[in-house]
Amino acid sequence: MRTPRPLPAAVSLVAVGAVVALAIWRPWQGSSAADAASAPAGISVSRSQCGQGLTDVKTGRQTLVVHNTGDAPAEVDLVELGSNKVYGEVEGLGPNTSAPMDVQLGAGRYAIRCLIEDTDAITGPSVTVTGSDQGGPAVVPVTKNDMLPLVKQYEAVVATGVAQLVVKTDKLRADVDGGNLVAARADWLPAHLAYNSLGAAYDAFGDFADKIDGSAGFHPLEKGLWHNASAASLKPIADQLAVDVHGLQADLPNEQVDPNDLGLRAHEIMENALQFELTGENDQGSGTSLNTALANLDGTAKVLAILDPVLKSRYPGLTDVQKWEGRVRVLLTAHKTTPVGQLDRTTREQLNGAVGELLESLAPVAAICDVRRTS
Rank of each mutant, 00 (worst) to 15 (best):
R2H: 10
R2F: 11
T3C: 15
P4W: 00
L7I: 14
A10V: 07
V14D: 06
A18T: 11
L22R: 04
R26T: 01
W28Q: 12
G30D: 11
A37Q: 13
S44Y: 06
S46I: 08
S48R: 08
Q49M: 12
T55I: 05
K58G: 04
G60P: 06
L64W: 00
A72I: 07
A74I: 01
V76L: 10
E80D: 09
V86I: 12
E91T: 03
G92W: 00
N96H: 02
A99Q: 03
M101K: 07
D102A: 13
G124E: 02
G124F: 03
G135A: 10
G135S: 03
G136W: 03
K144Q: 05
M147W: 02
V157F: 02
V162P: 05
V162I: 15
L165E: 11
V166L: 12
V167Y: 04
D177E: 14
N196P: 11
S197P: 11
D203V: 13
D203T: 14
I212S: 09
P220N: 00
E222P: 10
G224Y: 00
W226I: 09
P236M: 02
V245E: 06
G247E: 08
G247D: 03
A250L: 08
P253L: 12
D258Y: 01
N260D: 14
L264V: 12
L264S: 01
R265H: 12
N272R: 12
L274Y: 01
Q275N: 13
E277T: 15
E277W: 05
L290S: 09
L294D: 07
A301E: 10
V303Q: 03
D308G: 15
V310W: 08
V310D: 05
V310F: 06
S313A: 13
Q322W: 05
K323N: 09
L332V: 15
L332W: 03
V340M: 10
Q342D: 07
T347P: 05
G353E: 08
A354C: 13
L358P: 04
E360C: 13
E360R: 14
S361M: 12
A363R: 05
V365I: 15
R372I: 09
R372Y: 02
